[in-house]
């Protein structure tokens, strides 16, 4: 009798577990299938495509020839890789630094706080095609407003998006200092795009920083203040360390966002003047030349490298984060 009861119980429990599992799989099916088909499968499929001479339609199997073409010294791929890395190294710290400052400024009792927040967040919600078209016209060297203002102030107008010389070269030539060729720095066009990118994302980053700031217990500040700490001390000794998880995650999101960056570069320069990032290079091969095989090979090469760099970087940076 007792044995029988226990058996029924386990059977009931077992069938409940089975039912729960079935329900779970049912609930997961749509999301997981979509992700498998449209995110995982394309990775495999892309590899297959990359082995073909594929112009408009697949023509013939050529093994790793697309990779060989892409890997030639001095090829577009290497340039794109360099540009992507410069873009990231420039963009992420500048964005986060300004966002952090803004967040600290706004994290006080202020009137019209939500106005500032909205004003800074607005670029993030705007279509990047539209806002990039606006910025491109502001940047226009001869008729753009930015250079008009510079001329009005009797300053040297710049080439902005049309300037392929490195910023260090420009600064050095402005000061009359000769500069070795390898130290030219990112092109002014790329820096102009970084400025635009900062304009777009700084509000978003700031909002997240504000959330992070809100999570820091105020008692810590009060205690420190009683002990006579000044603003800078508070910032350096409390805010920064306690904000480090936020900073870490934000930089992760930002790096991913920067790699994806496409629309605005496409609209503003189409990759001219040292702004051909990995995204732009791949897209042009596919969209302008219908070379799906070569584009896929490029995607594999570029993103393997970028993934390795990112992971390595975060393995290192992650250790510095205080939890």
């Amino acid at each position: 009798m007792a044995v029988e009861l226990r058996r029924t119980k386990t059977r009931a429990a077992h069938s409940r577990a089975v039912r729960e599992a079935i329900l779970a799989y049912g609930l997961l099916a749509p999301a997981v299938l979509l992700l498998l088909v449209f995110t995982f499968f394309p990775v495999v499929f892309g590899f297959a495509i990359s082995l073909y001479n594929w112009r408009i339609v697949p023509r013939n199997f050529i093994g790793f020839q697309n990779y060989a073409t892409a890997l030639q010294p001095g090829s577009d791929m290497w340039n794109a890789l360099g540009t992507t890395i410069s873009y990231t190294l420039l963009s992420v710290p500048i964005q986060l630094f300004i966002a952090l400052i803004l967040a600290t400024l706004l994290f006080q009792k202020l009137h019209g706080k939500s106005f500032f927040r909205v004003a800074l967040f607005l670029p993030y919600v705007t279509s990047t095609v539209a806002s990039a078209a606006v910025w491109a016209r502001l940047y226009s060297p001869d008729i753009g407003l930015i250079n008009q203002v510079l001329r009005g102030l009797h300053l040297q107008p710049l080439g902005w998006l049309l300037e392929n010389r490195g910023v260090f070269t420009l600064i050095a030539s402005g000061l009359g200092v000769p500069l070795p060729a390898w130290l030219t720095g990112p092109s002014l066009a790329l820096v102009s795009i970084v400025v635009y990118t900062t304009w777009v994302f700084v509000g978003y980053d700031m909002t997240i920083f504000l959330a992070g700031l809100g999570n820091i217990p105020t008692e810590l500040y009060e205690a420190a203040r009683i002990d006579g700490a000044g603003g800078w001390d508070l910032f350096r000794r409390i805010t920064l360390p306690l904000l480090s998880p936020t900073t870490f995650f934000l930089s992760l999101i930002t790096v991913i966002g920067v790699f994806k960056a496409f629309n605005h570069i496409w609209v503003m320069t189409r990759g001219d003047n040292g702004t051909t990032t990995a995204s732009i290079l791949i897209y042009r091969q596919m969209y302008e030349f219908q070379l799906a095989g070569y584009a896929s090979a490029l995607a594999f090469l570029l993103f393997t490298v970028i993934l390795i760099i990112t992971v390595a970087q975060y393995q290192l940076a992650g250790r510095q984060v205080n939890y």
């Binding site: 499929f45 297959a48 495509i49 073909y52 013939n60 199997f61």
Partner: peptide, 18 residues
């Protein structure tokens, strides 16, 4: 018809689909 790239896994060479 163009050769479906499913065939690529087997390493078959597809002919130009012109």
């Amino acid at each position: 018809a163009t050769t479906a790239p499913a065939a690529t896994a087997t390493g078959e060479a597809t002919t130009a689909a012109q």
